Structures are given as C-alpha cells and as structure tokens.
Amino acid sequence: MTAQRCGIPGCCDVGCFRDHLEAVLHALPKKSARELRALVAALDDKILRRAKSAIQVDNLGVPWWRDQF
C-alpha cells in the first residue's frame, strides 16, 4: 500500500526529484546525457545496494524510485 501524498513536490513524494533528473537526462544532447547517465547509474546502484530489502525492483514498468520511499 502506498502512503498518502499531499501533492507538494518533495514533501511526501521524494521520487519527484528523481523524475526531474530523468527528464533532464532525456532533454540533454546525447553525449552529455550519456556522461550524466553514467554518474546517475552509479548512484542508483549504490542506493539499491544499500536498501536492497526495502526497495523492490520487480515491476519493470515502474521506475524503482516511484513509491519506494
């Protein structure tokens, strides 16, 4: 069950910041996006390793940061 959200970005839905970062990755030129995506992927991996029991990555259609915090 997901927690109630208040609708204020960043208050109850910290995943909104990761959504913005994903949007930036898609808006950047290819080379810049590739460089930033490598950095973001390393951070994502670190987060997932630290919280492997708390964050589910089973649903391939939903980004891991949505409703996981």
Rank of each mutant, 00 (worst) to 15 (best):
G10A: 04
E22Y: 09
R37K: 12
R37I: 04
G61W: 10
R37A: 15
S53W: 05
F69P: 07
A41R: 08
A51S: 06
R49Y: 06
W64M: 02
R50H: 07
G15L: 03
K31I: 02
G7F: 02
V62D: 00
P29K: 01
G15I: 00
G15N: 10
W65D: 00
D13N: 14
I47A: 07
L21S: 01
V57P: 04
H26R: 11
T2F: 09
L39F: 06
D44E: 15
A38T: 08
K46Q: 13
A3V: 02
A27G: 07
V40W: 08
K52C: 13
Q68S: 15
A27P: 04
L60K: 13
Q56H: 11
P9N: 04
S32N: 12
V57N: 09
D58P: 03
K31R: 09
D13I: 00
K30T: 15
V57Q: 09
L43N: 09
R18W: 10
D67M: 06
G61Q: 10
K31E: 15
L25C: 12
S53V: 06
W65A: 02
D58N: 11
D67P: 03
D19P: 01
C16A: 08
R5Y: 10
I8E: 13
E22W: 09
P9W: 02
A27H: 12
V40P: 08
V14G: 06
L48S: 03
K46R: 12
V24E: 01
D44N: 12
Q4T: 11
A54H: 09
S53E: 13
